[in-house]
Design a protein around this nucleic acid. Structure first.
Lengths: 197, 197
DNA sequence: ATTTTTTCTTGACTTATGTCAAAGGAAAAA
DNA sequence: TTTTTCCTTTGACATAAGTCAAGAAAAAAT
């Protein structure tokens, strides 16, 4: 019979164990040390300059990472359910966050301390395999994401966005999509009109 | 006493072992299965659409990855000595290369087959730790790289490039730098003039 | 249901960057 | 050295996207 806490992190376990199952001790260590976290739309998970202490799993909701460029913000990623979210620059625990992370919907997260991850990697070295595969996956995703904004024309960028993020296109306000594509909301609006003939 | 082959991959070993040393069997497996590869300036290591079969370590020289956007190419990364180079999209062995990889200087590479890597991960699971740390590092680098082109102004992008790639700024032709920054060589030239007052 | 706030669209105008063309320099080849 | 090729700069002009401003539409709050 599954307790409440178990139910909350079960979803995360599924993602972690898709490549390799975890031994019971690791599962227990996770259950005891991860904590649920709720964020309301608009709340910040992390601010630029913070020293990140955890990685977060998104059970429900969507978040974005952004930086500031002369007063206007640039969304560098948008993430939703079943993905991990973290300050990428601070992943190694040695550097501070470059990006600010904001909930763009009400979110249910699971917080996994960096120290816990280090401990697990250390005590149960086989978990490095999962870490390796997940990072490889996230690295590939980061590159695919980065590719979108390298195309010169706004229209081309939006089309690529629709291909890669179609599931989010009717869920996320256009201002975040525009900012993610490196264009203004007005330009995005015009591109959308053009595409719909 | 070190043989010629050993000398050639010694440099790569140093990078691999910076986080965790390799046991002798792994070293031998690497020595026997990696092969040196020379590329002349302008030669392609891999073309968009290829099924990548290896990862490459750069002993000497510089390379770039690029994609095509309506006839002009967009450089997505530039890499030099002591880094690994690969089709990022094809890293998992299941997808084909999105980018074309070109030597922008004469290069000495070490070719490490993906199958060899899989075999090593499998036979010597502790090597997953090195893989995990390297991917984490490359993931962070990819994000930092991607950040540059998200700034709106060409001048700001070039300044960030100088901060992050200062060591390459007088080594790489401006056409590649411009293409990496998502601007034309003419704009880059004007930005450079402006910065020098 | 009504008000308020936020999101999205549209138009007129501005601007940074792209395009085209020419020419000077630097590096490589003969 | 001389020639050839490639790299870089500069100018004049074109254009995609940004800015500002207004209002419509949709969502959230009351």
């Amino acid at each position: 019979m599954m307790t409440k806490v178990n139910a909350e992190i079960y979803q995360m376990m599924l993602v972690l164990e898709q490549y390799s199952s975890l031994r019971e001790e690791v599962r227990e260590l996770l259950m005891e040390n991860v904590t649920p976290l709720k964020l309301q739309k608009g709340e910040l998970l992390m601010k630029s300059g913070d020293a990140p202490s955890a990685v977060y799993f998104v059970r429900r909701g969507a978040l974005r990472g952004f930086i500031d460029d002369e007063g206007k913000d640039i969304t560098t990623w948008i993430t939703a359910e079943n993905e991990f979210v973290a300050s990428i620059s601070g992943l190694d625990g040695s550097t501070s966050a470059v990006q600010t992370i904001e909930a763009i919907e009400d979110c249910d997260l699971v917080q996994m301390p960096l120290l816990l991850m280090e401990k697990i990697y250390e005590l149960y070295p086989e978990t490095n395999r999962i870490g390796r595969i997940l990072f490889q996956q996230y690295y590939m995703d980061a590159e695919r994401r980065a590719l979108i904004v390298r195309y010169a024309k706004a229209e081309q960028r939006y089309k690529l966005f629709l291909e890669q993020y179609g599931h989010l296109s009717n869920r996320i306000p256009l201002k975040f999509i525009a900012s993610f594509l490196g264009i203004t909301i007005e330009t995005l609006s015009r591109v959308r009109r053009k595409i719909l003939h």
